[in-house]
Nucleic acid binder design. Sequence first.
DNA 1: ATGGTTGTAACACAA
Length: 257
Amino acid sequence: MRIATWNVNSLRARQDLVLDWLKRVEPDVLCMQETKVTDAEFPTDEFQRLGYAVVMAGEKSYNGVAIAARKLIRDVRIGLVGAKAGDDKRLISATIAKTRIFCCYVPNGKSLDSPDFEYKLRWLGDLRRTLDECTRPGDDVVVCGDFNIARDARDVFDVSAFEGQTHFHPKEHAALRQVCDYGLKDAYRLHHEQGGKFSWWDYRAGAFQRDLGMRIDYIFVSDGLAQRCSRVEMDVEERRKDKPSDHIPVIAEFGPR
DNA sequence: ATGGTTGTAACACAA
């Protein structure tokens, strides 16, 4: 089974790019973030034409998450435990092929002095609670998406530029560690030790051309999946296309149970 | 480079 995650930065702006990628790569599951589209306007038919069922939790203009899969999607749940009606649409989870998949769009955090920074930390704490309450020990669990945090020095182009800043702050690292302490491994790091491999580059100042990026998109997996994980790649070619998302897809492959 | 670009939407805000 192959599971991918991609912050598409507007599904309507990126529809052709995403569908072309699906056609070419044919993952079993694609988790999308920042769809920026209401459920009513979601291009469900276009995915179905390619053989994908979709479930989504969207809103107007901002946020929005969705899962597309070539297999049956069961037990869809929207939001964190204790979610309220007006909350940002940042989490959708579902069971596909006996695997519980959490598609996450973690708040950006904006800046250290912003209320959004506390919101980001609180959201990650609530994500851990959600994992504890909505799964059982031994379940195959995938927690993937845009985490807006670079995990360590290898995941930023220049540590000195990020030390203590948002996306690389000790409080963010602690909050993400707490999520991973549920029992999750960074699938990409199971197969790649090298630093300087990024999943996001700012649109501005030629950041991509200068390779000034960060690795902030992850596929975290529980122990059994980690043992069966045969390959993980980041599809940097998608960032070279016309009108690209600022993020690229991450794809993980797993052998049979 | 307290700049830069993109998407949504509406004359700004989020990223």
